[in-house]
Amino acid sequence: MKLILVRHAKSSWDDLTLDDHDRPLNERGEAGAERMGAWLADRGHVPKTLLCSTAKRAEMTAKILMEQFADKPVTDYISGLYHATPDTILAKIRNAPAGDLMVVGHNPGMASFADLISETRPKHERFASFPTTSTLISEVHLDSWKDLKFGDARLINFVVPRDLKVLL
């Protein structure tokens, strides 16, 4: 099964009266999410299930990604993924149904989780910071997500939006 981890796209700070949970994407974020979704779809990295934080910027990222997929994943919006720790992310994944899975979340938890879940780190200078719209595609040899442990995921690819200008 594939495990696809995505940090939400670039958010807007135009309205400083908004609660952090309610901040939308900015134009750059929307464009980055669209490019990432097209790249994922073009390479067959389309999940069966998508787990997403309930923060507006994460929900918008997931929606834009899914617009690029011919087959739409079953989506579960989970408040516990908002600024989740690696242990919380792992617990939410363990409750997911079998099949390729995407998680859309936030830093610092997403960066830490990506590092902990991977057998080996990608040789990408941006991996440690896991910038907005960063995407880690990995594979696990399990029949059920309930058995997932840190270190189980084998790297397939790691990309950031800036990379896609060259890759597309």
Results as ranks from 00 to 15, higher is better:
residue 166 V to E: 15
residue 71 D to E: 15
residue 17 T to K: 11
residue 37 G to E: 07
residue 53 S to A: 07
residue 152 D to I: 02
residue 130 F to Q: 05
residue 62 A to G: 03
residue 22 D to F: 01
residue 76 D to P: 00
residue 91 A to R: 10
residue 17 T to E: 13
residue 55 A to Y: 07
residue 97 P to S: 10
residue 86 P to Y: 11
residue 110 M to E: 12
residue 95 N to H: 09
residue 141 H to F: 01
residue 35 R to C: 03
residue 132 T to L: 06
residue 140 V to E: 02
residue 59 E to N: 02
residue 21 H to G: 00
residue 17 T to R: 11
residue 120 T to P: 00
residue 82 Y to E: 06
residue 57 R to D: 06
residue 80 G to T: 13
residue 153 A to C: 11
residue 43 R to K: 15
residue 20 D to P: 00
residue 167 L to H: 01
residue 133 T to C: 11
residue 6 V to D: 05
residue 43 R to C: 04
residue 53 S to L: 07
residue 23 R to G: 01
residue 122 P to Q: 12
residue 95 N to V: 00
residue 108 P to G: 05
residue 86 P to W: 12
residue 140 V to R: 03
residue 124 H to I: 14
residue 144 S to L: 05
residue 16 L to C: 05
residue 31 A to D: 10
residue 76 D to Q: 05
residue 38 A to C: 08
residue 159 V to H: 04
residue 31 A to E: 13
residue 128 A to T: 12
residue 151 G to P: 03
residue 21 H to T: 08
residue 95 N to K: 15
residue 65 L to Y: 09
residue 88 T to K: 13
residue 55 A to W: 09
residue 107 N to V: 08
residue 91 A to K: 13
residue 76 D to L: 14
residue 33 A to R: 06
residue 153 A to K: 10
residue 40 L to E: 07
residue 32 G to T: 07
residue 110 M to S: 05
residue 28 R to I: 08
residue 71 D to W: 06
residue 154 R to P: 00
residue 46 V to G: 02
